[in-house]
């Protein structure tokens, strides 16, 4: 599984990354590649203007908000 976190490094993006890591740890999911995308032109190519955003296996799950741990769990199960 591939999880991409999109954000330029503001507080909200760090919070999303933290939530994603906690969610993975809680359900003890290993085989995951967590990638951070911080370059703004790269983020825009995905069509995202409101950061942070989370993409799982190529699918945009949320943008412009910070999904909580439980919500992320339902996506990575």
């Amino acid at each position: 599984m591939k999880i991409e976190i999109l954000g330029t490094g503001c507080n909200n993006c760090l919070k999303l990354e933290e939530n994603a890591k906690k969610a993975l740890k809680d359900i003890n999911k290993k085989d995951v590649e967590l990638i951070k995308i911080t370059d703004i032109t790269e983020i825009l190519r995905y069509g995202i203007m409101s950061t942070p955003a989370i993409i799982i296996d190529g699918e945009i799950k949320a943008y412009g908000r910070i999904p909580d741990i439980d919500e992320i769990k339902t996506w990575v199960k």
């Binding site: 330029t8 503001c10 703004i40 032109t41 983020i43 825009l44 995202i48 203007m49 409101s50 950061t51 412009g64």
Partner: peptide, 16 residues
């Protein structure tokens, strides 16, 4: 929402 960190992505997104 507007914080200075989102002005660039919004600007580019509109122009694009």
């Amino acid at each position: 929402p507007f914080c200075s960190c989102s002005s660039v992505p919004l600007f580019i997104g509109f122009i694009e």
